[in-house]
Design a protein around this nucleic acid. Structure first.
Lengths: 184, 184
DNA sequence: GTCTATATCCGGATAGAC
DNA sequence: GTCTATCCGGATATAGAC
């Protein structure tokens, strides 16, 4: 992994651990082992780094979507859950949840990129919820869009609340979402 | 409203608009019309102000809980929703959602107070969900605790996502939560 | 209770040498 | 591509006058 990629990876972790406005180039410099001025060579502005972090997430999710596009809605749902389980295991929050709270303080480019990423995630979930209902694999009230908002909301907020001592509920929420979708 | 209360009110709004680490004593000083040094007279440390903001929320919620304690579970559910609708109308996020993202950067006293407030909210929702199921007003899968986590998660994250262009879903999510709870 | 003045620190950002 | 050195602005916080 080259320096640029290292910086992105560390920034991503810091954003999801402490928040966008609480992480600094100095934090990164310590972990990468270069000076803050050198980080500016790769990313002139902090917002350039912010954009790059989100683009990395877009790339990763795009790869997952492509890889799972011919799998069953249930498989895609499980993959979706596994993304959040992984974040839970590192005791962080998801990127959207972290940046959404700071939205009004972000540069416009970062806001726009964040909206692109969020749309991608929503469209993916919406698609497999819709297919799943058409194929009778899933049952739920409301439109696929509304249901996707509800499920993504559950996972996003659950990560935030987990750090506030609602740890033990994480698994049961996922189980209940699946139960509601599949049994009825 | 005295100066101290004004400061708390403005800080609350700034936290839910920009995030804890993005608001400053200077922001408040402009709105109150006093200098930053004067704010330190009322709240020596920023964390003292943070604690006071949360305590204000605890007081407000306690009043609501008391006022609604003999009302029906459905009435209490509607009151619960109305809290988030009000926040939505001011285009902000809720206190817990805002502070949860920055949790690891908050002083211990602020973290502890935030946990107290979150517990109060959860216990309230949990109580009327439980009573509602016992009285056959509500039907749902899972424990009252799990369901309360799911519903609070929906609202908390919905406020965050609303600012990212999922505005039009706000009402339909609330409608769907009610539909799922009440019809089946 | 509010002010002026100031201390101190931290963070983003730039210039220019190597 | 990384360094040293530096600038600048912003933020918390304190001292002491009024």
């Amino acid at each position: 992994m080259n320096t640029r990629e290292q910086i992105i990876r560390i920034a991503d972790n810091l954003i999801r651990e402490k928040g966008y406005n609480a992480f600094s180039f100095y934090d990164i410099s310590k972990k990468v082992g270069i000076k803050t001025a050198s980080i500016h060579y790769h990313f002139p502005l902090k917002s350039d780094l912010g954009v790059a972090v989100i683009e990395q997430h877009i790339d990763n999710l795009s790869t997952i979507i492509e890889k799972y596009k011919s799998k069953s809605p249930t498989d895609r749902l499980d993959k979706f859950f596994s993304i959040y389980v992984a974040i839970k295991n590192e005791n962080k929050v998801c990127l959207v949840g972290s940046l959404a709270s700071d939205l009004n303080t972000l540069d416009e480019q970062v806001q726009i990129k964040l909206k692109t990423f969020t749309e991608l995630m929503f469209n993916w979930v919406c698609t497999f919820l819709d297919e799943g209902r058409n194929s009778k694999a899933f049952t739920y009230e409301g439109s696929p869009r509304t249901k996707s908002v509800m499920i993504i909301s559950n996972l996003l907020a659950l990560l935030q609340l987990s750090r506030l001592s609602y740890d033990q509920e994480f698994k049961s929420v996922i189980d209940t979402i699946k139960l509601e979708l599949i049994t009825k």
